[in-house]
Structure formats: structure tokens, C-alpha cells
């Protein structure tokens, strides 16, 4: 059997205990949520932390609640299955429920968490392999090597952000709440709340800006516009289990007259960071959903997406084909959102 490296497991019952453990062990420690990403990565010797800190026993990190202001607050340790089936999420943030429902397979959604998916390591066909395989290759830029095999001669890692919930949360304008170690002499919790857009950086080695020792505790989704609609589209080979070969999240704000008042599209599984498709509101705002003009606008938006989204050979399979699917999935997902339908998926 493929072995896990040896490590010590800590299972703090409170956030303070967990923070103390990270403070004590520094970079020797890693957090584990559902383990569906970290455990395979550890078996592949991509990470060999001395201490693994499980967040599973910290009750405060789990749950979905709607604040009096209509904000959706989801604990980072809430499972993807719970996010997908939550009626609050389905009503207030359908794009997120859809994205969560298409992640991996049923068992992995029962184990995997929303926080874990947000914090997912980037993926690449030259990286997510066993130690033997990577040794035979001579390693890659992301781990232990000096060369990128995706962009040969490239100096930057282009491993792909592969988390379906990331683009969904970006279209929703979500914020992430991190808690860090409380500085000496302070008593107040050291909270840092950032827009999810500010999390990302365009570096496949680590594609997130985080502070040492902090833990993602919650995801906050502001109340959406009255006519909010959303949908998620996912390209993958099989009807389950696979990571996205391309994913796109759509938000449409629709007025009482069915005219679009705001829109956003985010794409994932291209390069290191998920990204917004730019200038789409210029095309969509003012169009009545379902009209011919809306359909033409959707076509133009699909073209914009095609120009802006360039999948690379970081995922298995044919990158040219993935690129060809960008406008198709963007268009289908926009129409699905407009109709209050979705997700867009081949099965």
C-alpha cells in the first residue's frame, strides 16, 4: 500500500489550542480538514509535515448560518456535502451549492470541507504523482526541481487552481475569515477578514497569500441582489470523482423587468489562480434574459472568455480541447443561470 510518511497527529478541541500548536511548531505543522487533498499529497511525499493538526474536533468551525443582515456564514469545516444540500445555500448562493455538488464523489464530499476546498493545493500532471514517479522525471519547479514541464523552459509554476468552490465564491463576493495567533499581551482574537479575490496570487507553487500560523475559520457570503441567479459549469471526463478540466461560475443579477443589472463570471482549472472574466458587464447589463439580444450578448461574453482563458498542459488530456470548451461552457452556464437552472455538467 502507498504509505503515509510518519507524523504526529494533534486534535485540538478549540481554536486557541490549534493556534497554539501552529505557534509552537511553525512550518513543521500543517492543518488537516477532511484530508481528501492532504492525505494523498502526503502519500505522494508532496508534504511531509512533522505535525498534522486536525481541525475536525473544533466544533466552532462547523455550521451554516444566516445572519440578521442576510449574510451567509459557513464554517470552514462544514463538509461539501452539507454545503451542497443546505437549503440556505441553495437559495442564497445556488452557484456554490452547485459547485460543491460536483466536487469529486459522494464519499469525498462527505469528508471534504468547504475550507479545505478553498485552500486546496494547486494541481499539475507533473506534480500530483508518487515520489518514485517524480524521481524518475527529475522533479519539477513546484517541488524539488528546477524545471517546469508544462511550459518548457518556463520560470514560473503554472500548476492549476482546481477548486470548484473558489470561482463560485468569487462571483458571490465572499470574504474569508482567518484567525491568527493572538500576539502577547493581547486578549482579542486576531482576526483577518479578506475578500476571496485577495487570497490568490499567480504562482502555482503556492497560490495563496496567507500569514504564518493562521487558520481559515469561516467563509462569509454577503446577501446577494434581489434578483440574484447563479450557476456552475464543470468540464471533466467522467461524471464523478474527477477534478475540473475547466470550471466556470456565473452570477447574474436580474431586475424585476428581467433585465440584467450585474454579472460576474469566474473561471478555474486554467492556471495558478482562478480569475474573473473581464468586461462582461459591458455586454450583459441591460439585456433582458431570454431575449435574442441576451443570447447575442452571451455569445460575445463567450468570445471574451475564450480570449481571456488559456488552459495549459497542467491537467491530463488535451489543453486545446479544454480551451475550445471555454466559450461553450461559459455560454451554457450563463443560459443556465438565466433560467435559474444548472449545474452545467455532461451527466
Amino acid at each position: 500500500m502507498l504509505r503515509l510518511p510518519k507524523f504526529e497527529l494533534e486534535e485540538p478541541a478549540t481554536l486557541d489550542e490549534a493556534l497554539a500548536l501552529f505557534a509552537e511548531h511553525g512550518s513543521d505543522a500543517m492543518p488537516i480538514a477532511g484530508g481528501t487533498d492532504l492525505v494523498p499529497n502526503m502519500k505522494h511525499r508532496l508534504f511531509e509535515p512533522k505535525v498534522v493538526v486536525s481541525l475536525a474536533r473544533i466544533e466552532a468551525l462547523t455550521g451554516i448560518r444566516v445572519t440578521s443582515g442576510g449574510e451567509l456564514e459557513i464554517g470552514a469545516m462544514t463538509t461539501l456535502a452539507d454545503v451542497a444540500r443546505s437549503s440556505a445555500v441553495q437559495e442564497r448562493a445556488p452557484v456554490l451549492a452547485q459547485a460543491a455538488s460536483l466536487i469529486a464523489g459522494p464519499q469525498l464530499r462527505t469528508m471534504g470541507t468547504l475550507g479545505g476546498n478553498v485552500m486546496l493545493d494547486t494541481r499539475c500532471q507533473w506534480y500530483n504523482q508518487t515520489h518514485f514517479w517524480r524521481t524518475s522525471l527529475g522533479y519539477c519547479l513546484k517541488k524539488d526541481g528546477t524545471e517546469c514541464h508544462v511550459v518548457q523552459g518556463g520560470g514560473k509554476c503554472v500548476a492549476a487552481a482546481s477548486n470548484d468552490t473558489a470561482p463560485a465564491l468569487m462571483t458571490l463576493g465572499a470574504t474569508l475569515v482567518f484567525q491568527g495567533p493572538t500576539p502577547p499581551g493581547e486578549s482579542k482574537a486576531n482576526l483577518r477578514e479578506i475578500a476571496i479575490d485577495a487570497l490568490w496570487k499567480a504562482d502555482g507553487i503556492v497560490n495563496k497569500h496567507t500569514e504564518p500560523g493562521e487558520i481559515l475559520t469561516a467563509i462569509r457570503i454577503p446577501a446577494q441582489a434581489a434578483g440574484h441567479r447563479g450557476a456552475y459549469g464543470k468540464l471533466r471526463d467522467r461524471g464523478s470523482i474527477d477534478f475540473p478540466l475547466f470550471g466556470c461560475a456565473v452570477r447574474l443579477d436580474v431586475g424585476t423587468d428581467e433585465a440584467v443589472t450585474g454579472a460576474d463570471i469566474c473561471a478555474v482549472a486554467l492556471v495558478a489562480r482562478p480569475s474573473h472574466v473581464k468586461r462582461i458587464e459591458d455586454e450583459l447589463v441591460g439585456q433582458r434574459v431570454g431575449s435574442d439580444d441576451f443570447a447575442s450578448a452571451v455569445g460575445r461574453v463567450a468570445e471574451l472568455a475564450y480570449k481571456q482563458c488559456r488552459p495549459m498542459d497542467n491537467s491530463p488530456g488535451d489543453a486545446d480541447y479544454r480551451r475550445e470548451m471555454v466559450p461553450v461552457y461559459v455560454r451554457r452556464t450563463l443560459h443556465a443561470a438565466a433560467q435559474g437552472a444548472g449545474p452545467v455538467h455532461h451527466v
Binding site: L9, E11, I32, G35, T36, V39, P40, V52, S54, A56, Q107, L108, T110, M111
Partner: peptide, 10 residues
């Protein structure tokens, strides 16, 4: 759940 990914302690 998948027991091959679940750390026994958890």
C-alpha cells in the same frame, strides 16, 4: 467515507 484517507485517530 473512504477509510484509506481517514486518519485512524480522527
Amino acid at each position: 467515507v473512504l477509510s484509506c484517507l481517514r486518519l485512524a485517530a480522527t
